[in-house]
Design a binder for these strands. Structure first.
Lengths: 303, 303
DNA sequence: CCGCGGTGATACCCGCCAGGTATGAGTGCC
DNA sequence: GGCACTCATACCTGGCGGGTATCACCGCGG
């Protein structure tokens, strides 16, 4: 007998992809369309997954599909598992590449001078592996690293979630408030956090959550730094960011140091246990750069 | 047309399982046996995986199979990916369990009194979720957590690798050398690391690596604590362990504090982003226990 | 009250591919 | 050279993933 029905064999990534599509859209028809298959096989595959797990994943009431509690768990876990599988494929292909490169991902606009210095120093070093730079928004770095689309990221502690990542500190700095140049706050030489939170005419902007929805609040909804920069220039909001990120400051902006904001450390971050010779080279360059910066005597390097 | 050959669709866990079996054993026939299939389909599946990735994974020379560099990468990544998929299934089933439990895994024999105290305190707390205790050897905890076979572990910093895990400190303590009672070192009231490393007649035991092989060295090969305990009693080796682990000390053993050994912190550890209400309860109990211990005034609690 | 649009489930068929067996090809060893 | 061993190839089979057609159920509006 050939291939007797894999009773409790193991979940296939195809099933996880199908489940994830339905869980994302909560609609079998549209999920099938996104997957490029018809709806009936999708329904059957999901039911089979439920049977295999022995767990109901969706409540199919009249007029609608909803995740059960177990379904919520699988929705979260499936993302991680699929990322891990995707990372396995990407990293394997990378390992076979005869001309190795490093892909570095960073938030667009953040730590620009630091990155420039790092890349310059790395380029000068012997047997330098070429570095591809990928720019992203917000806290996308962790996901990009997890799925193997980048080898290393510039991230910020304690702003970013560094769980599961190994890190190497690069630079610690204070934060500044970016306010409209025309606003009274712009005249101050320094402010405190209490001065800048809950300013009635400058409410903090709201970023989308991972699921795409926005938290409540008075501030404007933003999805990119460009939007944010313009909103500040228009006098609609303010923000508090690491001092070096003011590289993208507009003439209509003013930067005021926030004396009691938490210090922010820019770190090199990579998935735990993902060491490679090429990455080691970059880390070494970063460590040397940091020593040089300190030897130069400026605890707060100019940016 | 139905199911046109998934060209660059995505890797299936079946393929990763097959590849892993071959990579583990470096032998198609035995790998097929382990998988419960015949050898030809296995060969074909691996070739298909290589074609799909566009990468050679094995060097099939005359008389033998060896991993390529890319194969080594996939071997490591596939373990993680399969663990993630397995964890997704386990955690989903757990979430559907109407009577939730927590599974805690710890090295057999380590931190016994601490664990006992934690379980007692947790059992006394209201709405206490039952805790299953799983015992393992060595550094198996991280893998067990990763594949979802346990929710939380007792681990030791800096001994264990805590990458990718969130932790909560429980207890910091010094280390002791466990030596044969008849050995001259047993008469000392305290020793230093230099006293106990490279003692000619008491070479440090060698534990297997993750792949099952042993590092070189003069010490005996061991795979379990019971072996180790008896080897010390027989006067063949010594070991340096956290003070509280001497719970499994034999009459033929002597424990001597090692003054300059690094302090060891017992921590509660769980995979990042795996919070649950039941786990929060245990963590709270642990935090309360820690406060009580400090309030009792004994910085180094008796064990 | 009865269509009507829209949803997921069911019924049924088809063909690809994972699985099997048999055998070949290459190599080390006696 | 024959033998043992190992992986690759050839070829067949049937289970399952895919498709289309249709049903069952609901909410809604005339």
């Amino acid at each position: 007998m050939s291939a007797y029905a894999r009773v409790e064999d193991g979940i296939e990534t195809r099933e996880l992809r199908y489940f994830t599509a339905v869980a994302d859209l909560l609609h079998f028809g549209r999920a099938a369309e996104r997957l490029g298959i018809a709806q009936p096989p999708l329904s059957r595959a999901v039911r089979q997954l439920e049977r295999r797990l022995g767990v109901r994943l969706f409540d199919r009431d009249r007029r609608g599909v909803a995740l059960t509690e177990a379904g919520e768990v699988l929705h979260r876990e499936a993302r991680l598992a699929l990322s891990a599988v995707e990372a396995a494929a990407r990293r394997t292909r990378r390992a076979a590449d005869p001309a190795p490169t490093i892909t570095l991902v960073t938030k667009a606009g953040a730590s620009h001078a630091l990155l420039q210095g790092l890349l310059d120093a790395h380029g000068r070093s012997r047997d330098a592996v070429p570095v591809r730079v990928e720019l992203c928004e917000l806290g996308e770095q962790a996901g990009i690293l997890r799925r193997g689309a980048a080898d290393v990221a510039l991230m910020h502690r304690p702003v970013d979630d560094l769980a599961g990542l190994d890190t190497q500190d690069l630079l610690t700095e204070g934060q500044v408030a970016i306010v409209p140049a025309a606003h009274p706050l712009a005249a101050r030489h320094r402010v405190t956090m209490s001065d800048v939170v809950d300013v009635p005419d400058l409410p903090m902007a709201r970023w989308p959550r991972l699921d795409g929805t926005y938290p409540d609040g008075p501030g404007p909804e933003v999805r990119s730094q460009a939007q944010l920069a313009q909103l500040v220039a228009l006098g609609r909001t303010l923000l508090v960011i690491p001092a070096s990120s003011r590289a993208w400051q507009w003439p209509e902006h003013a930067a005021v140091p926030v004396t009691d904001a938490p210090m922010v450390t820019t770190v090199l971050a990579w998935p735990a246990h993902t060491g490679s010779a090429a990455l080691d080279g970059l880390r070494e360059t970063a460590a040397a750069l940091r020593r040089d910066t300190f030897r130069a005597g400026s605890g707060e390097p100019a940016v």
